[in-house]
């Protein structure tokens, strides 16, 4: 893998990790302000680096749910056609995939999750869930196909082809708090949602969601990431 690809990989990784990092330090007891009832926001727009990517996702099933106890859950659901397309692509490019070095992925895995290896992916995924609240769902970890995939990856250190599960989703769980962020450039403060923990004295949540009222008068919010020029909008419909 050339260095440019490594750089792109690391930037993508940073984008993804910075979007999930909020989960790193969740408070167990939380008296910060929360939604008083369970509130679900559904994806309405998704843009990455000026590209509309909403087609890659199942918008109706990509949601952020806020619970009154201070917990939230973001669910990313791919477009139902995507797992099939990816699976076919992988079958057609089997040899190319086998030639991809995964050493950079393994290097980052060992740093983000010390003691883990990308080549031993199943325990690494478990640790990802425990440590950062990021869960990959829809995989039958004890099923024949998954067991064979993980064993092949560990042995060959290359990416084996596999059938992407049709009901694959990614969920991110974290604590949250509602807040207002004053701005020197507008009269009204931003209505925001802090994800993860923050210190009373001036800590810094990694992910802030910005709330607004959309054109149809619905309560809405968006999340942004500068690295990926990412903006995902959600609204209560």
């Amino acid at each position: 893998m050339n260095k440019r690809k490594v750089l792109i990989l690391s930037l993508l990784l940073i984008g993804v990790l910075s979007s999930v990092f909020c989960l790193a330090s969740c408070t167990e007891t939380d008296d910060r302000p929360h939604f008083t009832q369970e509130t679900t926001f559904t994806l309405t727009a998704a843009e990455v680096m000026s590209n509309d990517v909403i087609g890659y996702l199942s918008a109706d099933n990509t949601t952020i749910v806020f619970f009154p106890d201070g917990r939230m859950r973001l669910t990313l659901t791919p477009n139902p056609a995507l797992p099939g397309i990816v699976s076919v692509y992988m079958m057609r490019h089997k040899d190319d995939l086998a030639g991809i070095s995964l050493s950079d992925m393994d290097r980052y895995t060992g740093e983000v999750l010390p003691g883990q290896s990308f080549y031993r992916l199943m325990p690494a995924l478990m640790k990802l869930g425990d440590s950062l609240g990021l869960h990959v769902n829809g995989i039958d970890y004890e099923g024949e196909a998954a067991v064979a995939f993980f064993a092949d990856l560990e042995e060959s250190h290359t990416l084996p082809t596999f059938a992407v599960p049709k009901d694959l989703t990614v969920t991110i769980e974290a604590s949250y708090a509602l807040c207002e962020v004053p701005s020197a450039t507008q009269e009204e403060p931003f209505r925001a949602i802090y994800l993860g923990d923050y210190a009373d004295l001036g800590g810094d949540p990694i992910l802030l969601l910005t709330r607004y009222t959309d054109d149809e008068g619905n309560e809405a919010l968006f999340l942004t990431n500068e690295t990926l020029a990412l903006r995902f909008d959600f609204s209560v419909r």
Partner: peptide, 22 residues
């Protein structure tokens, strides 16, 4: 930014120099 750097990532708030200074 210190997303890549602190290890484990879950300990970013304990290692990143911005938070240490703060």
């Amino acid at each position: 930014e210190a997303i890549l750097g602190p290890s484990p990532l879950a300990a970013r708030d304990l290692y990143a120099y911005c938070t240490l200074i703060g």
